[in-house]
């Protein structure tokens, strides 16, 4: 156990993280690009037309994965916030704060695509249905997180305050979600999360899964490159950063 912790601390040291992340980003980025292109082609052209909703249902291939990501990223933020508070691993703070804008962007994307989908379905751009409303509240939680982060000047205490906020938020999300659900049950029932037999046809499930994994890998690539920049800024006075900067600017001059 001790050896594992030591290895984790070693890996989580800014210098090693910077190097390893730099190597991993292209892999995640390219695989994400391939998956997203394949998923888009499959979803937009190959998957069959829905017998009720026609072609307009195809926006779910973006809407649903984006909504999944919006919740997943908030969980990541709360988890890494807790890790940072308990084991004092600085890198976890960096991951949490780099995730917030990406998560907010996915939430916004889910809201926009949801409302575009809603126009032909419900005949209105916005309907106060349970899931759209929960997603909107989730966006507010993200905005609050980012506002708190930018309001506190010292980055260390900003990260710790944000970790507390994210944990409080994550405890409240199920309560908010179910109270909103209870408040209004207008949306169609869940289609994929049923474990026994998914009510979505396999030809539509494949592009959905391609897009979902593509989004997930894109998130990993994006969060790693944001975290890399953050590490450089927070460690700007250490010798290894100066070496890196000298190396890269030297390469440019040649």
């Amino acid at each position: 156990m001790k050896a594992i912790m030591k290895w984790i601390y070693h890996l989580a040291s800014p210098k090693h993280f910077y190097r390893i992340a730099g190597k991993l980003i292209p892999w995640f980025g390219w695989i994400a690009a391939i998956l997203l292109i394949a998923g888009s082609i499959d979803g937009l052209f190959i998957a069959p037309v829905d017998y009720q909703q026609g072609d307009s249902y195809r926006i779910i291939f973006i809407h649903v994965p984006a909504a999944w990501m919006s919740m997943f990223i908030y969980m990541v933020m709360a988890t890494s916030g807790a890790i940072a508070l308990i084991w004092k691993i600085k890198l976890a703070d960096v991951i949490a704060s780099s995730s917030a804008p990406i998560g907010a962007a996915f939430t916004f994307l889910a809201l926009v695509t949801g409302s575009i989908w809603g126009k032909p379905m419900w005949g209105a751009w916005w309907v106060w249905d349970a899931r759209l409303t929960s997603e909107l509240i989730l966006l507010f939680l993200y905005l609050g997180y980012m506002a708190l982060e930018s309001a506190i000047e010292d980055p260390r205490s900003a990260a710790r305050a944000c970790a507390i906020l994210a944990i409080v938020g994550v405890v409240n999300i199920p309560i908010i979600h179910y109270s909103v659900e209870w408040w209004n049950t207008l949306h169609q029932g869940a289609t994929v999360t049923k474990l026994d037999k998914p009510s979505i046809h396999i030809s539509m499930l494949i592009p959905l899964m391609l897009m979902a994994f593509g989004f997930k890998l894109y998130y990993v690539a994006a969060v790693l490159s944001r975290a890399r920049n953050k590490v450089l800024i927070t460690e700007q006075n250490s010798s290894w950063v100066k070496e890196v900067v000298a190396l890269e600017s030297g390469a440019k001059n040649v």
Binding site: I137, F140, L141, G144, L165, V168, N172, I176, S179
Partner: peptide
């Protein structure tokens, strides 16, 4: 208000 109001919703 940004932090607290979303949590008041339930």
């Amino acid at each position: 208000s940004l932090l607290v109001l979303p949590l008041y919703i339930p």
